[in-house]
Structures are given as structure tokens and as C-alpha cells.
């Protein structure tokens, strides 16, 4: 069987795996965007307690492997609480907590790259800290953050393959299951790799386009 026949034959299962990969990634990224903004703002907050909480979160996530996080959430938490999570729920929680922590760092970096005088000028006009952040700092920070955030989306998409270890039938797990039946390891992994590669290339091109747009808007 050549690679095209193999692809055609396993097409429905591969598409279903890709669907799980993309939807898990998208939902996780949507939640991570909220987490990243929230914890990113906490990281630069004048309030020590907020900063402390955010640092603990970011450090815990960055200081442990994502595969351990996935095991902890899928096996560890039910073991302690008796509450069973489906693989997809545990997978989404793992991915969004992970991407959220890295995004928080990106948001912090973006905000801190805006010159201090911008906040001072806004506050000197009577704007509150929140209004100054919203109207003056974040719009400038976002432009700086875009490339890193897109990069984070790509990393999260790739990291979703790790969720195969908790039995989530996303794309990688699907590949493994198909190979278990037909032993076409070489061709199958090429197919799976291409199926990751295409959406990632689209994301990369998209980000280059957005970056160009932002550059034009700035000049």
C-alpha cells in the first residue's frame, strides 16, 4: 500500500484525530488567553499579593514537565478527590494552565517593554491605573506581544500531542492506534507529521502577515 492509499484508507480516523487536536488546542488557547492576561497583569501589579500569587502559578507550571502536569490532573486529582475527569477535560485543563503561564510571561514582558513615561503621562492626566493600562499600555504592549503569542499557539498545538499519554485520541494517539493495526509505522508518522505541519505553517504565515500589518500601522 503506498502512502496515498494509506492516507485515504485511514482518512476518517485521522480527521477525527486532527479534529480532537485542533479543538482541544483552540479551547485551551481561548482559556489561556484569559489566564495569560489576568496573570500577566498580576505579574506587573503594584500589589505584592497579586504579584506573589501570579509568580507561584507561573513558576510551578514552568518548573514542571507538561507530561507530569497531565498525569497529575488526569490521575492524581481523581485519586485524591474521587472526582473522575474525562481525558479531554483533563487535557484541556493541562494545556490551558500550561499555555496560560507562558502567556502570562509574554504579557508581562510586553507591558514592561512599554516605556515607563507612558503610564506616568496617562496617570498625570487623571486616568486610573486600570484605564491607563487599557487605553495606553496594553494597545502598545499587544503589538510587541503578537509574535510571541503566535509562537505560544504553535507550541500549544504541538504540546497537545503529549495528551496521548492520558489516552486522548488526538492526532498522535490516532496515529499510534492505526499503526497498531497495520504496522505501517514509517508512512503513518510521515502522514501525522504533515498533518501537524500544515496548520502550523498556516499559523506562521498568518503571524507574519499580522506583524507586517502592525508595522505598517505603526509607521
Amino acid at each position: 500500500m503506498n502512502i496515498f492509499e494509506l492516507f485515504a484508507q485511514s482518512f476518517p480516523r485521522l480527521m477525527s484525530g486532527l479534529g480532537v487536536t485542533l479543538s482541544t488546542t483552540l479551547i485551551s488557547l481561548a482559556i489561556a488567553a484569559v489566564l495569560g492576561l489576568l496573570f500577566g497583569l498580576m505579574l506587573v501589579s503594584p500589589n505584592k499579593v497579586f504579584r506573589g500569587i501570579a509568580h507561584v502559578y507561573v513558576d510551578l507550571i514552568r518548573g514542571t514537565p507538561i507530561i507530569v502536569q497531565a498525569f497529575f490532573i488526569y490521575f492524581g486529582i481523581p485519586n485524591a478527590t474521587g472526582m473522575r475527569l474525562t481525558a479531554i477535560t483533563a487535557g484541556v485543563i493541562t494545556l490551558c494552565l500550561n499555555a496560560g503561564a507562558y502567556s502570562a510571561e509574554i504579557v508581562r514582558g510586553g507591558i514592561q517593554s512599554v516605556p515607563k513615561g507612558q503610564m506616568e503621562a496617562a496617570r498625570s492626566l487623571g486616568l486610573s491605573y486600570g484605564a491607563a493600562m487599557r487605553k495606553v499600555i496594553l494597545p502598545q504592549a499587544v503589538r510587541i506581544m503578537v509574535p510571541s503569542l503566535v509562537n505560544q499557539c504553535i507550541i500549544t498545538l504541538k504540546d497537545s500531542s503529549i495528551l496521548s499519554v492520558i489516552g486522548l485520541t488526538e492526532l498522535t494517539q490516532t496515529g499510534r492506534l492505526i499503526i497498531a493495526n497495520n504496522f505501517e509505522s514509517f508512512k503513518m508518522w510521515i502522514i501525522v507529521a504533515i498533518m501537524y505541519f500544515i496548520p502550523i505553517m498556516i499559523l506562521t504565515k498568518l503571524s507574519q502577515w499580522v506583524e507586517r500589518k502592525l508595522k505598517i500601522a505603526k509607521n
Binding site: P115, G117, Q118, E120, A121, V136, P139, Q140, R143
Partner: peptide, 12 residues
């Protein structure tokens, strides 16, 4: 009102 040495206009 305050006016700064570096102007600090909002560039966006």
C-alpha cells in the same frame, strides 16, 4: 497638568 522632558505622547 504635567509636561515631561521626553514628551511621552501616546505613539499609537
Amino acid at each position: 497638568g504635567m509636561v515631561f522632558q521626553q514628551f511621552n505622547l501616546f505613539p499609537h
